[in-house]
Computed example of a mutant assay.
Amino acid sequence: MRAALLVLMAGLMLALSGLAALADPSPAIDTSRELVVATKVAPPFAMKGPDGTWTGISIDLWQRVAETLHLRYRLVEEPTVDALIDGTAAGKYDAAVAALTITGPRAEIIDFSQPFYHTGLGIAVSLTGGARWMVILNTILSFGFLQAVGALVGLALLVGILIWLFERRRNEHFGGARGIGTSIWWSAEAMTQASTGVRAPITLAGRTLAILWMAVSIIAIAVFTAGVTSALTTRTLQGLVNNASDLASVRVGAISDSSSVDYLTGQRIKFRGYPSAEAGLKALKDGQIDAFVYDKPLLAWHVLQEYSSTMDVLDIVFDPQNYGIALPLGSPLRKDIDVAVLDSTRSDWWKQTLFRYLGER
Results as ranks from 00 to 15, higher is better:
residue 191 M to K: 02
residue 194 A to D: 05
residue 194 A to L: 12
residue 195 S to H: 12
residue 198 V to Q: 10
residue 199 R to G: 11
residue 199 R to L: 15
residue 200 A to S: 14
residue 200 A to F: 15
residue 201 P to Y: 05
residue 202 I to C: 07
residue 204 L to F: 15
residue 204 L to C: 08
residue 204 L to K: 13
residue 205 A to D: 14
residue 205 A to S: 15
residue 205 A to R: 14
residue 205 A to I: 07
residue 206 G to Q: 04
residue 206 G to M: 06
residue 206 G to C: 05
residue 206 G to R: 04
residue 207 R to M: 11
residue 207 R to Q: 14
residue 208 T to H: 09
residue 208 T to M: 14
residue 209 L to D: 02
residue 210 A to S: 13
residue 210 A to R: 13
residue 211 I to Q: 11
residue 211 I to R: 15
residue 211 I to L: 14
residue 212 L to S: 10
residue 213 W to D: 05
residue 213 W to C: 09
residue 214 M to S: 11
residue 216 V to F: 15
residue 216 V to Q: 13
residue 218 I to Q: 11
residue 219 I to P: 02
residue 220 A to P: 01
residue 221 I to D: 02
residue 222 A to K: 10
residue 223 V to M: 10
residue 224 F to E: 01
residue 224 F to Y: 04
residue 225 T to P: 01
residue 225 T to M: 13
residue 228 V to T: 05
residue 229 T to Q: 07
residue 231 A to N: 02
residue 235 R to S: 01
residue 236 T to Q: 07
residue 237 L to V: 01
residue 240 L to R: 03
residue 241 V to P: 04
residue 241 V to N: 03
residue 242 N to Q: 14
residue 243 N to R: 05
residue 244 A to V: 09
residue 246 D to W: 08
residue 246 D to P: 08
residue 247 L to N: 03
residue 247 L to E: 04
residue 247 L to K: 03
residue 249 S to Y: 14
residue 255 I to C: 07
residue 257 D to S: 06
residue 257 D to H: 01
residue 257 D to P: 00
residue 257 D to W: 00
residue 261 V to W: 13
residue 262 D to C: 09
residue 263 Y to L: 12
residue 266 G to P: 07
residue 267 Q to C: 11
residue 269 I to S: 08
residue 270 K to D: 12
residue 272 R to C: 08
residue 272 R to D: 13
residue 274 Y to A: 06
residue 274 Y to F: 14
residue 275 P to S: 12
